[in-house]
Simulated scan of single mutants.
Amino acid sequence: MVLFIVLGACLVGVAITLNVTWIILNWRRFMPLLLGIPFFVLLIAGVVLNTIFLVREVRRNERHDAFLNAVTHELKTPIASIRLYLETLERRELPEDTRNKFYGIMREDSDRLLATVEQVLKAGEVGQRSRSQQMRVPVEMRSLVSACIDITRSRSHAQAESGVPQSITLEAGDPSIPVIVRGNPDELQTIILNVLNNAVKYSSSRVDIRVHLRIENDAWVILSVTDSGIGIPSAHLKRIFKRFYRVPNRSVLRTKGTGLGLFLVRTIARQHGGDAFASSPGLGLGATISIQLPRVLTPLEAPAVTSLHRQESV
């Protein structure tokens, strides 16, 4: 990437030098100046655009390589774990409680493996589907968010047992006021679980997550998830929603993930007529991921009651 930037800067410098020399030699001739200056502007613009394109391609290839490494690790680790426990069960006579424990671990590893595959497929699916192709029903967000929090707590139960303090609180406002959006319940569940799981994963020594659900200007439903984790540098707040992008930080790169979670969050939110945003005071000071969705003021039918699947998120 540095090579392409330096090469582009050198080409622009050479072009400017030649053009200035040409103008000095032909400043008394009107037609060469009239024709030469626009061609010079086009030449410089072409060199700059070509350099930008090359730099973007280099960055995209780097993200693809990081994604392949992450997915390979996410697939290899549970497969190796399942194989190890199966070989142990085949070669040794184990007590019933130990066998049941091994079965539970293998089930969790298979769920993790399936979730990684489903997430990659979902990323390709949402990128190709238009909003008009989706089936929308009214969804009550307060109950959906509460159920997703329960799932997140159950998933991180092992971390709580290891001595890491955990706290996930929900502030949803007046329960008598309906908080309803129109959308696909499964996809809304996916983005909420992704944001909650990210907040748990990137929390450092303790898990302290605050979930706020509010109505803004009677037109928008805002879901904000704030953690006290490793934080996000300001230069990366917009980039984290790109496909395969992960913040180049050692603490982040040590955490398992494919770089697709927040891409799915923003893509699905925009397909529902909303958006997703990120904010952070800085490194080590936590971060807030907000999802904005259009509110349904007078639903024509009862909100959808969804059966929440215990699927893994990023």
Rank of each mutant, 00 (worst) to 15 (best):
E87M: 15
H236Y: 10
F263S: 00
S132N: 05
I240N: 04
N19H: 13
S280D: 02
R92T: 13
G173E: 02
L223M: 02
W22D: 04
L42T: 07
G261Y: 01
L170H: 01
G284D: 03
I105S: 07
R295P: 04
S279E: 15
G261I: 01
I82H: 01
K256N: 13
P178D: 07
Q119P: 05
G286F: 02
L34V: 11
T21C: 12
P233W: 03
A302Y: 08
G8W: 09
I230A: 04
L7D: 08
S313F: 09
D150W: 02
V12K: 11
H236K: 09
L35K: 04
L113G: 04
R310D: 06
R254K: 07
L43Q: 07
R182M: 15
T98H: 09
H212A: 05
N197F: 12
R136D: 03
E301M: 06
H73A: 11
N50I: 03
L11R: 04
V181M: 03
V48H: 08
L196V: 02
I209V: 05
E62C: 06
R107S: 12
I209K: 01
E118F: 05
V12Y: 09
G46H: 01
I168L: 11
R99V: 12
R206Q: 13
V207H: 09
L300A: 14
L75K: 04
N100P: 07
R28F: 13
A269V: 00
A235Q: 15
G273F: 02
L84P: 04
L253F: 14
C148M: 08
V48F: 06
I105F: 09
A15N: 11
L297M: 14
A147I: 03
I5R: 15
R214E: 07
V164E: 06
V126A: 05
D186P: 06
K242I: 06
M141P: 01
S280F: 05
E216F: 15
P178G: 08
K122E: 11
L193F: 10
I177H: 10
V55Y: 11
L283H: 14
R246H: 04
L283E: 10
P32H: 02
T298N: 12
C148T: 00
S203Y: 07
R112M: 15
T77K: 10
L285A: 14
L196Y: 00
G257F: 01
I79K: 12
G257M: 03
R91A: 13
G46F: 02
V48K: 07
G163N: 00
T226P: 00
E108L: 11
T190F: 03
V181W: 02
Q271T: 13
S143A: 06
R99E: 06
P299E: 00
E74K: 13
Q159T: 06
